[in-house]
Amino acid sequence: MRDVVQQPRAEELVNIRALNKWYGDFHALCDVELDVVAGETVAICGRSGSGKSTLIRCIAGLEEFQTGELVVHGIALSPQSSLNHRKVSGVGMVFQNFNLFPHMTVMENLTIGPVEVARVSRSEARARAMHQLERLQMGAFADRYPSTLSGGQQQRAAIARSLCLNPRLMLFDEPTSALDPELRSEVRTTINALARDGMTMIIVTHEIELARDVSSRIVWMDDGAVGRTEAGAPPTYSGNGRGGGGLGGA
C-alpha cells in the first residue's frame, strides 16, 4: 500500500522534551519525554487521570501546553497556543466516542477531509474512501448513517476517515473503551492490521490486551509523568476478527 510504506527506522515522527501542562493549577503533564520513530506502535497505558489522553491530545494539537518542546512530523508546536491543531498535518486521530459526523453518511464522513482539506476531486476522494472502507471490511456500509451502525462499525468508519488523509502517524485515544467487550475485537483486529502494514501509531488505552497485542513498546504513565517502558509484542496477526488477544493472556 502506497500510503503505509515501511519507513526507515531512523525517521522520528514525534519528539517530546520536558513537556508540561497544567489544567488551572493541576499539573497534568510533568516533564514528559517521548520519542516515536516511524513504523513503531507505542501504547500508552496508565490509570484514569494519569495524563495519557492529555498527552496524545497535545500531540494532535488539540490541547494547549505550557512549557517544553513538542515536534510532530517535523513541525515544532508552540507552547501557550490553542491553535496548534492548524499546524499539525499528516496525523490522524481516532477518538473514544468515534465523533463521526451524524448528519453525513459514512461516505460523506470519509470524503470531507480529502475534498475540503487536501482539495482532491470528489471522485478521487470517493475512490480513496471506498478503498479504505473495503480494507477495513466496511464497504457495505458506505451509504449508511453512523447512527445505524454498531459501535465497532462506527469506530472502524472513524479509523477509515482518518486514513483517507494518508496520515504518517495515527493517534488512538481509548479506541475501544466505549465498546462492548465483544465489539472490541473488531477494532483490535483493525489496529493490528494497520500495525502489520507498518503504520506508525500511538495508542492510549487501559485495555492491557490491546497494548500487549499490537504495540512494539508500552509506555506507562502515572500521575502525569512517564514511568517505566516495556517492550511489547512485535506486531502479530491475532486471528480473523473473532479471537483477538493472541498474546493477551501471557
Partner: peptide, 27 residues
C-alpha cells in the same frame, strides 16, 4: 453540538469556517 465534533473536524484539518459550514451549522 458536542465538542467532540469540533475536535474531530480539527483533527481532519478543517479550518474554522469549514467547521461551521460543514459540521456544526448543519447540525
Amino acid at each position: 453540538i458536542p465538542h467532540g465534533q469540533i475536535e474531530a473536524s480539527r483533527a481532519l484539518g478543517l479550518g474554522p469556517l469549514q467547521i461551521i459550514r460543514l459540521v456544526t451549522l448543519p447540525q
